[in-house]
């Protein structure tokens, strides 16, 4: 009983905190504060995962999300020199439209959830508490295993890293056609730069 009571209290505390911080995320005029609020939302989510018995996931959440993604966002905010910039409030119409859309969604979802009847879980079924169960499933070659998505995910991350580097690299000068790179345009360009294009072609023998 003690456990259940603590769970209730923690759920509402963490849930309220997450919602408040989320409101701060979308309403803060300073992006840095929004990023900070996001971090608190993610931390609260990690706590909620713990309440749900997903300890491994909670760890991942803190490590990847809070430790990686939020830091990346903070860097991006710095790089786009928006850290000290006060963002303008959106137009009232836009705010109204967004509020109507999101509240309608919430009402709709609430309506669905209220009618949702889940089959009672089998009594005594306990979640696999240890991370090793998840790890085995992830690397399982069998029909229920996730090894293929897992490997694809690694490819995706690799592609994202390379793509991120390629995109964020210094852009080429304006008078040159857009290329994927900028340092050695001649090698990867589809369209030749003007200086080379204007040269008359030499007749082949």
């Amino acid at each position: 009983m003690m456990h259940d009571a603590a769970l209730t209290v923690l759920f509402y505390v963490l849930g309220a905190g997450a919602i408040l911080c989320a409101l701060a995320v979308v309403n803060a005029r300073r992006l840095l504060r929004a990023a900070l609020a996001l971090m608190f939302v993610l931390l609260a989510s990690a706590g909620l995962y713990l309440l749900l018995g997903a300890e491994f996931l909670a760890g991942i959440q803190v490590l990847v999300y809070v430790g990686g993604i939020v830091i990346l966002i903070v860097f991006a905010v710095m790089l786009t020199s928006a850290a000290d910039l006060l963002e303008d409030h959106p137009s009232p119409g836009r705010m109204l439209a967004g509020a109507v859309a999101s509240i309608s969604f919430l009402v709709f979802a609430g309506g669905v959830f209220a009618r949702l009847e889940l089959a009672a879980p089998a009594p005594g079924a306990r979640p696999p508490a240890d991370a090793s169960a998840i790890g085995r499933r992830l690397l399982d070659f069998g029909s229920e295993g996730y090894v293929l998505p897992f490997e694809l995910l690694s490819l995706l991350l690799l592609a994202a890293v390379i793509g991120g580097i390629a995109v964020a690299r210094k852009t080429p000068p304006r008078d040159q056609p857009f290329t994927s790179g900028g340092d050695a345009p001649g090698e990867v360009d589809i369209v030749l730069p003007r200086s080379q294009r204007d040269e008359p072609e030499e007749p082949r023998a």
């Binding site: 997450a18 919602i19 989320a22 909620l48 859309a101 509240i103 979802a109 959830f113």
Partner: peptide
């Protein structure tokens, strides 16, 4: 409902 609320706020 908690997750839906977070989602709706994100949507907003």
């Amino acid at each position: 409902l908690l997750s839906a609320t977070l989602f709706a706020i994100g949507l907003y």
